[in-house]
């Protein structure tokens, strides 16, 4: 009892303490477990996909994989040597070797060549649908944030946006199929895919745009209006320019979503395989919009479910997944980095 304060404030070792420490550790373990799981999926696909995408010698990237269309892989033995050739090379080989006609070969679809048409298709789908979604979404956000007063109707619109965000992507696919493909008679086409995807990301774009518009200080609007600017002049000259960077960076997240979704394009825009590239063999320029395309996510679905798995097919499977994941990850990280940088830059 010489020093009561010291004994009062000394930590009391006991069961409670141990429990508490254990519980807090559990939270930490949960957090890092999630991160590890994510990292593992990334790592596995990068590790197995990299050999397909990169090469050991210059130019260090498998150019053919990025620039050619998918082909079947023919595996056969010729004069005691094991050969693996794609469609075209195999035909050339047969033509060159008279005795090659009798070769017994195992063929694996999609396992040779590259994924160029899929990359092109995905890019077209993303560009078109984001164009539509940005136009509709930014306009909606401008109305909701700048013009609308709090009324039952506006609340209804907000409710609709909120609910639209929760609709499963496959339902968007069904809707796009029912409306664009069947009812409008657009068939499986770019246009149908664009609108389906655009409607799907609309809530993301609207929310992002509204957030950015809200970040523009009220003073900019009042100052402009007090100088005799009309509402539209105020928005165009003094609100949108400052909100636009935010709108665009946040919408990049929408791009990641559009690029990554498979279910909505399965019946509206994607072909399993298509020989022609989108700009080849068009009779009219309008045909461009009414053609289906190959798309990366759908291609991954096809190669992972419709063909058997073995050493030959795994290469293209992992390679495609690697490229796709890389693209989406790049888009997403761009968005995250830009957004945090933007937040630091614009402080009014």
């Amino acid at each position: 009892m010489t020093s009561p304060t010291a004994t009062h404030f000394a930590p009391r070792p006991g069961l409670g303490r141990t429990w508490e420490r254990g519980a807090l550790w559990l939270f930490r373990v949960a957090t890092y477990f999630i991160v590890l799981c994510g990292a593992f999926v990334f790592g596995q696909i990068f590790w197995r996909g990299a050999p397909t995408v990169f090469t050991a010698h210059a130019p260090f990237v498998n150019v053919a994989f990025f620039t050619e269309a998918p082909e079947s892989l023919h595996v056969f033995a010729y004069q005691g040597e094991k050969m693996e050739l794609g469609d075209r090379a195999f035909n050339a080989f047969k033509a060159a070797h008279a005795d090659a006609g009798a070769i017994k070969d195992d063929s694996y679809v999609y396992s040779a060549g590259g994924i160029f048409p899929c990359i092109v298709g995905t890019m077209l789908l993303v560009a078109g649908s984001m164009g539509i979604a940005l136009f509709l979404g930014v306009s909606s956000a401008i109305y909701l944030n700048e013009y609308a007063r709090d009324s039952a109707f506006v609340r209804f619109i907000r409710l609709a946006i909120l609910n639209l965000a929760g609709v499963p992507s496959i339902v968007f696919g069904l809707f796009g199929f029912g409306m664009f493909v069947i009812f409008f008679g657009w068939n499986v086409s770019l246009l149908a895919g664009w609108f389906t995807l655009a409607f799907m990301v609309l809530p993301v774009v609207i929310t992002a745009s509204e957030e950015s518009l809200k970040a523009v200080p009220k003073g900019f609007r009042e100052g402009s209006l007090a100088l005799g600017a009309t509402k539209w002049q105020t928005i165009r000259k003094n609100v949108l320019p400052y909100a636009l960077p935010g709108i665009l960076t946040s919408s990049i997240l929408g791009i990641a979503r559009v690029a990554g979704e498979t279910a909505p394009i399965m019946f509206t825009a994607a072909y399993v395989v298509r020989d022609k590239l989108p700009w080849e063999g068009l009779e009219k320029w309008t045909d461009f919009f009414f053609q289906g395309v190959m798309a990366l996510p759908y291609h991954i679905y096809v190669v992972s479910s419709k063909i058997p798995q073995n050493e030959y097919t795994a290469r293209v499977q992992y390679g495609t997944a690697f490229v796709f994941l890389l693209i989406v990850a790049l888009i997403a990280s761009t968005s995250i980095v830009l957004r945090s940088r933007l937040r630091n830059r614009y402080k009014w």
């Binding site: 003073g219 900019f220 100052g223 209006l225 005799g228």
Partner: peptide, 19 residues
């Protein structure tokens, strides 16, 4: 109202120069 505001200018409590 636009014409009105051109004739009647306003300076706010918090200075709000445009960026």
């Amino acid at each position: 109202v636009i014409e009105l505001r051109k004739r009647v200018g306003m300076v706010f409590q918090k200075s709000n120069p445009f960026p």
